[in-house]
Write a protein that binds this DNA or RNA. Structure first.
Lengths: 225, 225
DNA sequence: TCAAAAGTGTTCGTCTTACACCCATGA
DNA sequence: TCATGGGTGTAAGACGAACACTTTTGA
């Protein structure tokens, strides 16, 4: 392979992560604004270009850290994007990732060396995005819905104890459909995903709810829903 | 983004397809030998580098055509591969694809402008491969097993009429497990995947088998197995 | 009439879905 | 005592897995 060949030269790889959270019962995605062109002052998914000395997953995590301050997030590759004109500067393909974080636990930097803003947007109220990020986000949302069914990705949202109604609401919010409360409990309790802490959470004027936590040693044998 | 930046410069994208077929009850994969270095005279999966003016899927199909003469094959992306040293020449990441072809229908070129050999190898008798193709092939075989369950990818193997015992054997061969004959028939016949042609295929000394063909308008609503 | 492979139904267990009432709490 | 939300069981249907005998053919 001739690396000077015009057919191949000047290609790059974008690592683009759609980072989701739930805030006040709404699914939100983290967007940033880049400090520099291209797409300066336009909202964007979190990501950037792969370095020569790193694997894709490592690069995606580095970009997340550099642009948001978030460390140690589990992310999952779901699809590539390769429209020829998707980047105005040079030929870039993109590898799409999804991840989830718990707002309480993670402080997102509003400004970094490379960004001038960062904010959470409800996924049905997304501003105009740079590159092909609107297309990537649509696919990421689809992948997210599948992932919460066939993996325990939502662990991230509940690092500590939680009640089943809380988890129930999150599933319904993300999947955008009702799930029967009794069936939900049955399925979760029969899986080895969660552990009864024997504790309770008390609400004002309501029956206390049992507290559970995710089983760190769990493994999924079938779909959650 | 500075395209001269050493961190990013000289990256490329490999499009690597594991093309499967069944011959005499054995799952085989198509391997080629490149005419030029690197990995001259070493068996390799079918593929090559993305051009600047094409999308990934288009590029993968172009490479397949250039190196085997095969046109119009349906392929599916399944995973990326990005070991830093996977290519000896420059930084290349790979996007892995799988595809299936019917040996009867397709003539594979034994030599092309870019290859000096092409042959089908049983997947448990793979010679030493160049690059990280042994790792890619292992993942491709896993992806293939999943794909025959949740898609109608095997259509490719049966462009014309076939009997259910023929299809049954193919599933068992690929999945490497027995599938009950009655349950197999039931599931296939109840799906809208196949159509009864009302014809029969006669064998010497055996009961004739009914002929079916894949329904070109079918869509999968659930897994086949 | 025999060997070889094709064709065919039923049962049982499990999982999925739908559905309604009682309980604990604080105001 | 009431409003709020939490907790619970059962029945019906769908689906998956296991299993054995009969049919057709050509030699």
């Amino acid at each position: 392979m001739d690396i000077k060949n015009k057919l191949y030269s000047n290609q790059g790889i974008h690592l683009i992560t759609s980072i989701f959270t739930i805030e006040n019962g709404v699914v939100k995605v983290l967007l940033i604004k880049r400090k520099k062109e291209p797409y300066k002052d336009t909202w964007a998914l979190v990501g950037g270009a792969l370095y020569n000395n790193e694997e894709l997953l490592i690069g995606a995590n580095r970009e997340i850290y550099e642009k948001t301050g978030i460390k140690n997030i589990s992310i999952y590759e779901f699809k590539t994007f390769s429209r020829v004109d998707r980047s105005p500067i040079m030929r870039m393909i993109a590898v799409g990732y999804i991840g989830v974080i718990d707002l309480e636990r993670v402080r997102v930097l509003k400004e970094t060396e490379k960004t001038i803003a960062a904010d959470w947007f409800p996924i049905d109220k997304i501003p105009k995005l740079g590159y092909d990020y609107e297309e990537i986000l649509i696919e990421a949302i689809k992948a997210f819905k599948i992932k919460i069914i066939d993996s325990d990705i939502l662990k991230e949202l509940f690092p500590n104890d939680f009640t089943l109604p809380e988890l129930h609401k999150v599933y319904e919010t993300i999947l955008e459909r009702k799930i029967d409360r009794r069936n939900f409990r049955k399925k979760l309790l029969m899986s080895n995903l969660i552990i009864d802490t024997k504790k309770e959470k008390r609400f004002e004027g309501k029956k206390p709810a049992k507290l559970y936590r995710f089983n760190s040693k769990s493994s999924l044998s079938k779909n959650v829903f």
